[in-house]
Structures are given as structure tokens and as C-alpha cells.
Design a protein around this nucleic acid. Structure first.
Length: 587
DNA sequence: ATAGGGTTAG
């Protein structure tokens, strides 16, 4: 068959076009002349021509793509999926991978088709003999395209379904899939995908392992993360600086006892293994120590990194500035801001937010507000968080009018108040017992289409509890569950506390039952509330039983627990007969 | 294609 001969279809016979001339017009994008020659006056006609060109052995894939793109934009209507799939196959066969990526990207972005229908259409399209090999490449790129377009659910479907078509995927799509699932906090899916990768003999690489370790750390499964480090070694990969940084960060954020000691041990271990700590390593440690309330240890790490000739960057300084401000050491934070200037590290909005927060915490509201001018001078644009911090600071000092003025100022600077803004203000009004102003803000939220969140409800519930309006408070619990908001421990504990204070133990236990039903287990705070309720009423036996129950569950008593035991029980002459845990810890 | 920083509730 020669390129100019008509192919076997009836449509082609009718058209009997000079395909070389047609291709030439397409390549030169002479669309009106193409219309005259080939009659492409509709999307359907263009589709027909595309099929014709695809059937011709001399079809040129880039030309096909030009025609396809022109048709979709010119007629403002998408071409049918089977045709798109034929185009994808021809691009894959010609190894035009960047064009293929682009086409899959637009297919994924449009969201018109589900992953299974795309895979199915691909599987029955294209040259039967070469389909298998190119199907794998296309499916692999499809998963990647779906991930990049935040269509994680479809990406997962494509990942699993592609197995039914015998596709061999690669780490190039699986790694980003894992990474996105982690970003979305869907750790169960992460582990499933990983296991499926192994089952399908998609060999994990160093990045797969680092990503998985990150996911497990984020899910606070530190032991499993450690197991994976051993796994990676059996696959022939040595932990890299990223592996260590991830683990160090995992421990810093784990909340477990001695976490900073573990983080420090990992630092020593990596140095011993001749893996050099980098800026991220130090930043992670500095942030970890700051969050642990130990900014002086963090400051020593800043010195250490300088000694190792690693340049602290804006993240380094931000972590330390935030830590210092959190401890009320705003002067030292300002010293660091000066140091940034000296070493040409540009402060950004996060830097200033930290200092604004520091001033607010000390009640130095004029200084905090004054930072807005400094920011302006330095070309740093305040963010919602800057204003929220300022607003919250004013609310906490009872300066509600100034807080409202700041909200106007932020709107005037083109920053829309978000839920947090409203939460700060509502909580401020509630603290002042001004429920009518709080309610007005709730209405305003509705008008501005800002949805109430968990914190909004917690704030309102605790305000109602303080006023003893328990029926209304419980009603809000129902309401939030109705609109699909998961109540938190705080929500339940606030209600339990309110009900206990009213002496309504039965209702309090009812909420506790709802809490368990909602998958949230009683925590230390829950027990403290209940123990306080009993011991405060002289029911020492019940209080004691709750103490034991709490310890049996492995919950660790905190300061509040000890205060209750000391003031309500011991000082009134009752010695809890709970087992050894308490004596050891209390001593 | 993998790792690090900011506000708000009890």
C-alpha cells in the first residue's frame, strides 16, 4: 500500500484523499486550507480524518497530535476516548514520550474519564502486536499524570487496575504516587501500594524507601520506619542523608519520651557512617529542640553548623526565632533578625510572623502592630497568619474593638479573613461573655461562605459549657457530626467537663460512650475530669478505680492528675491504693 | 521522583 492510496474503510474510499498533502497542511497548520481539502468542518469530520491518518502506515504522530489539538480547541469539544487512545498508542510506538506525557496530562486534567475506562479503551486500541509493550509505558505515565493533577483516587485505581492488563509499572510513577498519598495523610493506602509494588516485582529504589520511611514517620509508626531501614539494606541500599533527616524529623515530631535523645543518637550514627549532616539535618534538629522548649540547645546547634561551614538559611533562623519567641525571649529573636541582615539572609513572612507572635504573647501589642510597617519597608507581604496572630493577640488582651479594626485592615489589604480569623474573634467575644457579638460573626461567616470548622465548634461548645447551657452545647455536638465534622478529644472532654460540673454524671458518661463510638478513646484529660468529679464529691473509691483503669490502659498521669491526687485525695486524708506506677512517678 | 520553618481550642 502506498501512502497515497485509499485505505480499506468505506469512509476513506469515499474521501480518497491525498494523505501526504493533508499531512503537509496539518504540519504547517493551514487549517482553513485543510477544511477546503479534507472537509474538516466539524469535530466528527476531524475525527474521521484522524482515523484515516492513523490507519495509514505513514502516519506521522506529531502531525496527528497537531490535528487532534486543533480539533479539540477549534470545535470546543473533546474527541472521543477511543480516538484519544489510538493517538496515545501511536505516540508511544514512535517513542515520543514528551508528547505522550502532554496528552496524558490533558486527559488526566480534564477529568472526563475514569481511570478504568481509560485503561480499558487503551487495551482494545492500537496495533495488536505492539500493544503490550506500549500499554505499560502509557499506563505508567497515566498514573503519573493523574497524580500530578491531584486525582489521587483515580491514580490509585489506575495503579491497581493496570495489573489486570499485564502492565509493568515503574518507580517513576509509583514513587510520586506514594509521595502524594503521604501528603494527603492516607497512610493505609501507602502501605498497600508498597506491598502491591513488591508483589508485582516493581523494584523499589532508594527514593521509594526514603518516601516510605517518611510516610511511616508521619503516621508515627517509628518502629515500622526502622524496620524499613533494615529492609532497604537487604535490597542493597544504604541509608542516605535524606533517610537520616527523615528519621530525625520523625523522632522530633513523635512526642515520645526521650525523643530528642533519639534524634541526637541518629545524628551521631550518621556521622559515624560517614554521612555528612547538611543544612536540613541541622534545621530539623534546631526546630525539634525549639519545639521541645529547649531553644538554648537549638542555639548551640546553630553555632555547630556554622563551625561546620554550613550556611544557616531562612528556615534555620525561622525555627530558632519561633522557638525563642515561644519562650518569651523576643530580644534574642530580634538579635537573630539582625544577624540575618548581617549575613544577607532575607527574612520572609514566616520570620516576621514569629516575632509578631512573640510580641503578642508578651502583650506588647503596639510593637507587634508596628512590625507591619517594618514588613512593608522590607517588601514582605503580611499573610492571613500575620493578621490572625495580631487579631488573636488583641482578643486575648480583651481589645475586641482593635481586633475588629485589624480585621478591617486585613480585608482592606486584600486578605480575606479565613476560619481561623473568625475562630480567634469568636473565641475572644466568648471569653468576654459577649455571645451576641460571637453570633453576629457566625452569621457573617455564613454570608462570606467561610465554613465553620472543628475549632469553631470547640470554641462555641466550651463557651456554652462555661455558661452552663449544656443542652445547647450537646446540640452543637450533634450539629457538627451532621455536617461531617469529626469531633476531637477536646470536643468530648469539654462536654464531659461541663456535664460533670453540673453534676450530671449520667449525661457525661453518655458523651464518653459517644466518644468511644466515634473511635476516640478516653485520654488523660478525660480521666482527669472524671477523677476530679468523684474525688471532689468525696467518692474516693470511684476516683481510685478510675485512676487504676487509666494506668491499666497505659495512660500516663500528668501534672493535673497529680494535683487532683494531692489536693483532693491525699490532703483530705485518703491515700489511693493504686499500684506501684504512681508511687514511682510521684516520688 | 524522597527530607526542614509560621496563627487559632483544652
Amino acid at each position: 500500500m502506498t501512502p497515497n492510496s485509499c485505505s480499506q474503510t468505506a469512509a476513506a474510499a469515499a474521501a480518497c484523499l491525498d494523505l501526504t498533502a493533508v499531512s503537509d497542511l496539518i504540519a504547517r497548520q493551514h487549517w482553513s486550507r485543510l477544511k477546503a481539502l479534507a472537509g474538516t468542518t466539524s469535530a466528527a469530520a476531524a475525527a474521521q480524518l484522524l482515523h484515516l491518518l492513523l490507519d495509514s502506515p505513514h502516519a506521522n504522530p506529531p502531525t496527528l497530535r497537531l490535528l487532534f489539538r486543533w480539533s479539540e480547541s477549534h470545535f470546543r469539544s473533546p474527541q472521543p476516548l477511543p480516538l484519544h487512545c489510538r493517538l496515545l498508542h501511536s505516540l508511544a510506538a514512535a517513542k515520543l514520550y514528551s508528547d505522550l506525557r502532554f496528552e496524558l496530562h490533558s486527559l488526566a486534567k480534564s477529568g472526563r474519564h475514569s481511570a478504568p475506562s481509560i485503561l480499558h479503551s487503551l487495551s482494545i486500541s492500537g496495533d495488536t502486536r505492539r500493544r503490550g509493550a506500549s500499554l505499560s509505558v502509557i499506563a505508567d505515565m497515566l498514573v503519573l499524570a493523574l497524580v500530578k493533577n491531584s486525582r489521587t483516587e483515580s491514580a490509585l485505581e489506575a495503579f491497581y487496575r493496570s495489573r489486570d492488563y499485564g502492565c509493568r509499572l515503574s518507580v517513576l510513577s509509583c514513587n510520586p504516587l506514594l509521595s502524594y498519598l503521604i501528603k494527603e495523610g492516607r497512610i493505609e493506602n501507602v502501605e498497600k501500594v508498597y506491598k502491591e509494588m513488591i508483589r508485582r516485582r516493581i523494584a523499589p529504589n532508594l527514593i521509594t524507601f526514603n518516601t516510605m520511611i517518611h510516610g511511616l514517620c508521619k503516621a508515627r509508626k517509628l518502629r515500622r520506619a526502622g524496620d524499613l531501614v533494615e529492609d532497604m539494606k537487604t535490597w542493597g541500599f544504604s541509608p542516605s542523608v535524606v533517610t537520616y533527616n527523615t528519621l530525625i524529623d520523625g523522632y522530633c515530631k513523635s512526642g515520645q519520651a526521650g525523643k530528642m535523645y533519639k534524634a541526637d543518637a541518629l545524628l551521631r550514627e550518621m556521622v559515624l557512617a560517614k554521612i555528612h549532616p547538611n543544612v536540613v539535618t541541622f534545621n530539623t534538629l534546631i526546630d525539634g529542640y525549639c519545639k521541645d522548649g529547649n531553644s538554648s540547645a537549638a542555639a548551640r546547634f546553630l553555632e555547630e553548623m556554622k563551625r561546620q561551614e554550613l550556611s544557616p538559611n531562612v528556615v534555620t533562623y525561622n525555627s530558632l526565632i519561633n522557638g525563642l519567641c515561644g519562650e518569651g525571649k523576643v530580644d534574642e529573636a530580634l538579635g537573630l533578625l539582625k544577624e540575618m541582615d548581617d549575613s544577607n539572609v532575607m527574612p520572609n513572612v514566616v520570620t516576621f510572623n514569629g516575632i509578631v507572635n512573640g510580641f503578642c504573647k508578651k502583650g506588647m501589642l503596639a510593637e507587634a502592630k508596628g512590625l507591619l510597617d517594618d514588613m512593608l519597608e522590607r517588601n514582605v507581604t503580611p499573610s492571613v497568619i500575620t493578621f490572625n496572630t495580631l487579631i488573636d493577640g488583641h482578643c486575648r488582651s480583651g481589645l475586641m474593638e482593635d481586633a475588629i479594626a485589624l480585621k478591617r485592615l486585613m480585608s482592606g489589604s486584600g486578605i480575606r479573613p479565613n476560619v481561623s480569623t473568625y475562630n480567634c474573634l469568636i473565641s475572644g467575644f466568648c471569653r468576654n461573655g459577649d455571645m451576641s457579638s460571637a453570633t453576629k460573626l457566625l452569621d457573617e461567616m455564613e454570608e462570606n461562605d467561610v465554613k465553620a470548622d472543628l475549632i469553631t465548634y470547640n470554641v462555641l461548645i466550651s463557651a456554652l459549657c462555661r455558661e452552663g447551657k449544656m443542652a445547647k452545647a450537646v446540640k452543637l455536638l450533634d450539629e457538627m457530626q451532621d455536617i461531617g465534622l469529626q469531633p476531637s478529644h477536646v470536643t468530648y472532654n469539654t462536654l464531659i467537663d461541663g456535664l460533670c460540673k453540673k453534676g450530671n454524671l449520667r449525661a457525661a458518661l453518655n458523651i464518653r460512650a459517644r466518644m468511644e463510638k466515634g473511635g476516640k478513646h478516653a485520654n488523660v484529660v478525660t480521666y482527669n475530669i472524671l477523677i476530679k468529679h468523684f474525688s471532689g464529691r468525696g467518692k474516693m473509691h470511684e476516683a481510685n478505680e478510675l485512676l487504676n483503669e487509666m494506668l491499666e490502659k497505659g495512660l500516663v498521669p500528668n501534672r493535673v492528675t497529680y494535683d487532683i491526687i494531692k489536693e483532693d485525695m491525699v490532703e483530705r486524708g485518703y491515700i489511693p491504693d493504686i499500684d506501684g506506677h504512681l508511687c514511682n512517678d510521684a516520688a
